[in-house]
């Protein structure tokens, strides 16, 4: 099963002929992902290491039947690329681009909601999604993710941070724990996919038995997730929130990681999650240990 992407997902890489797109697109293919095409306006008819390049997403979809897209283009072209994918009928768009202006992000999100309800955007500024052994779209190193087992128990991961996600994947692998899907929702203020979207799917995914959530300061997405968990999630969960010591008013690397006006603190988020029954670790290692305990109990 897994969520969002699986062995049948067909991916087109927007920006395949660029440095980032080529590097990660080929890595994704080498992992086993069905990378069926690339899109670069004006470069249709060429190929990148055997992957055909098209002038537009529409042409790529017609020729390959792609249903997912990987957007790896610079910030000023990213919004256009996302909307082009949506207009071509792509159902799942992963955008790794960092540094898209917040105004563009807010506009793109709302255009998608209004005009393209069939399209889900993951990101921007996210590491992507991996369903280990099946499909990897984005910049995650596939080899640090443990394949899920048929009977489980397997863990689903959802995270706002890239490196902390890799760390979680790696720790679970060291412990021999399989991962159904790992979703990096990204650190920007207006993510296309939020915690709740992922929690909802993990809850109903038979291959996922426990859920790990990694949040950080800024906004109220973790608090909203906690309310959702309290009402809807029955699978056991562990969590970690980064930024307990972050000074107020500063953007901590991610555009969305900022404590402002006393809102968005790590403490508030940890408390909300604990109250929803989530086991919250005070550092990533402890959260990993809590998850290992949960899995041991489920085994």
């Amino acid at each position: 099963m897994a969520i969002f992407v699986n062995e049948n997902t067909k991916v087109v890489v927007q920006g395949l002929t660029g440095g980032q797109g080529r590097y990660h697109g080929l890595r994704n293919r080498d992992y086993g992902t069905n990378v069926v095409g690339g899109v670069t306006p004006g470069k249709g008819g060429q190929d990148v290491d055997g992957i055909p390049v098209f002038d537009s997403v529409t042409e790529a979809v017609e020729a390959t039947g792609a249903d997912a897209s990987f957007v790896a283009v610079p910030p000023k072209f990213a919004s256009g690329a996302i909307l082009e994918a949506a207009e071509a009928g792509i159902a799942f768009v992963v955008c790794i681009t960092e540094g898209i202006p917040a105004q563009d992000e807010a506009m793109t999100y709302n255009v998608l909601v209004r005009n393209h309800p069939g399209t889900r955007l993951l990101g921007p500024n996210c590491p992507g999604v991996i369903s280990p052994g099946k499909c990897n779209i984005g910049i995650t190193a596939g080899e640090i993710a443990q394949n899920p087992t048929a009977d489980g128990p397997n863990v689903g991961i959802v995270s706002r941070s890239g490196t902390l996600t890799y760390q979680a994947l790696y720790e679970l692998k060291q412990a021999g724990i399989g991962v159904s899907t790992c979703v990096g929702i990204g650190g920007d203020p207006v993510p296309g996919t939020n915690f709740i979207d992922c929690l909802e799917r993990f809850q109903s995914d038979p291959e996922t038995h426990a859920i790990m959530m990694i949040g950080e300061i800024g906004g109220s997405a973790e608090e909203e997730a906690a309310a959702f968990i309290d009402a809807n999630v029955t699978k056991p969960m562990a969590a970690y929130i980064a930024g307990v010591t972050a000074p107020p008013g500063k953007k901590m690397g991610h555009a969305g990681a900022i404590v402002s006006g006393g809102k968005g603190t790590a403490q508030g988020k940890m408390l909300a999650l604990s109250e929803a029954g989530v086991k919250v670790g005070v550092n990533p290692t402890e959260a990993g240990e809590l998850m290992t305990e949960i899995i041991r109990e489920l085994s």
């Binding site: 902390l164 930024g243 690397g253």
Partner: peptide
């Protein structure tokens, strides 16, 4: 010094802990 914003924030937290 850390790689990744989340890991850098987390490093600050652990130092503090």
């Amino acid at each position: 010094i850390a790689n990744g914003a989340g890991l850098a924030m987390s490093t600050l937290d652990v130092v503090n802990q």
